[in-house]
Amino acid sequence: MSDVFADQAPVHATGEPAIVGAGPWALAWRRLVRNRVAMVMVVVLALIVGLCLAAPLYAHHVARTDPFQSHLDATTVVNGKKVPVMQASTSGLGLGVTPIGPTWDPRHYFLGADDQGRDVAARLLYGGRNSLLIGAAAALITCILATIIGLVAGFFGGVVDGVLSRFLDVIWAFPVYLLAISLSTVLIAKGFSIGPFRLESGSLFLPIAIIGVVYIPYVARPIRGEVLSLRRREFVEAAIGLGASTWRILWSDILRNVVTTAIVFFPLMVAIDMLTEAALSFLSIGVQEPNASWGTIILDGQGLLYTRPAVALAPGIAIALTVLALNVLGDGIRDALDPRAKLRRTD
């Protein structure tokens, strides 16, 4: 069906001089390294990932707090004075309890507390681990499954193609968030088991699997199209004519050619998946308490938007920065590999 909505940015248009005497991968690598904007983003990304990996270090040794435990009765230090983390109103009718705001002191509630009195900065770092993990793992699932489906459908054609394509059509037309919401309602409540595999509800793998599956058509379609056109190319027809085995042709002639497409899609899919994860968690069907992700922290912050906007602002900025870096990097990789990648995303 349609792989027409294309973001086609051919490299030959950039008028780069050809580099002689190097393999295609080495060439691509050299082009990528020379892309200064992309390299800046690699550094940004590395910084974010590094910070998130250091979450336990920060929580245990700097902030000295357990971000998965409620601290409703705790106290902290601001300007050398001991103050409660959850501050009950004392004026007027004395209604309401407000968590402490940002102290800008990394040792004591740098970004303030959430409605359980937990350190937002520490949760932000832990949440980033989950967001990044889900994004990367889901993108991996999407790219691998999509490559297999696209390869099989495009190469064998006929009934196989018909069945797989209809399957892709259905996922494609089923509105993304609805599918995710429906699946999560079923899976989050009960968990899931196929044979010996048992998925506990609340497991991180649930959002990963859901998001991974939902985006398969976006990658599988262009790969199928590419396989279709490769099949008609002389070198493949020649191989078939020479009596090469089907698997050999698939492996050596076709897969090698489409794998670059999958690679180009990968960082872009990570970006899309992270946004989707945030949206699902925001609709409270993604990562489950007490685990955090950037999406769930935005949700926590929504209830405090009026008095403590920092809780919602910080994770949003973190997502935007990471996704931006991934997008720029993805662009760079595509420009370097030039597979005339075709990409579509959703609202």
Partner: peptide, 22 residues
Amino acid sequence: LVGISMPVFWLGEVVNLLTQSR
């Protein structure tokens, strides 16, 4: 790209924060 990278619901919340309360 910056526009593409922001979660739309978050952007909406920030807009609401500015226009409806702050």
